[in-house]
Amino acid sequence: MSKTPVSFTLNGRDTGVFVDGGANLLDALRRGAGDLSPKYGCGQGTCGTCTVLIDGEPHLSCLTLAETVEGRSISTTSGLQQGAQLHPLQQAFIDGFAAQCGYCSAGMLVAAKALLDTNPSPSRDEVIEAISGNLCRCTGYEPIIDAIMEAAAQMRSPGGLGRAV
């Protein structure tokens, strides 16, 4: 057996994993790095539950060859909160009932974060576009869209941070 070492930063911390040839990033994160927040949903690029940010941009970890993230920066929902403070997106999801079963939430949140990091004042259509690759079977999307709009408003307001966990 041969394993390939891959090192990257995960939520700001240096991380290294050994992967099998052909392993995808989702497996590397979950079984290698122990970050269980990204989920398997389809393995084919349809559902978006495995979405993570690579250098700030959303990617599907189940379709990303693990070795290709060598030296890059990966963010997941596990690293979303700032210290003991929830990220405004997380708080808005809680307040707005934007998660039911919770399975899509981790992917949905990082997709939303990628949007707000580059566009602090998105229109509703831009929010819809940003999460268009992330399926949700429970909510019907409206509460999620509302929550992202609410979080954007919070983040624009001075001192608008989430609550302590």
Binding site: D35, L36, S37, T77, F93, D95, A99, G102
Partner: peptide
């Protein structure tokens, strides 16, 4: 507020996998 939603939004809810 859903009792399980904090786990959902922090990625810490434990699904079977």
């Amino acid at each position: 507020i859903r009792q399980d939603i904090l786990g959902h939004v922090t990625g810490r809810s434990e699904f079977y996998d």
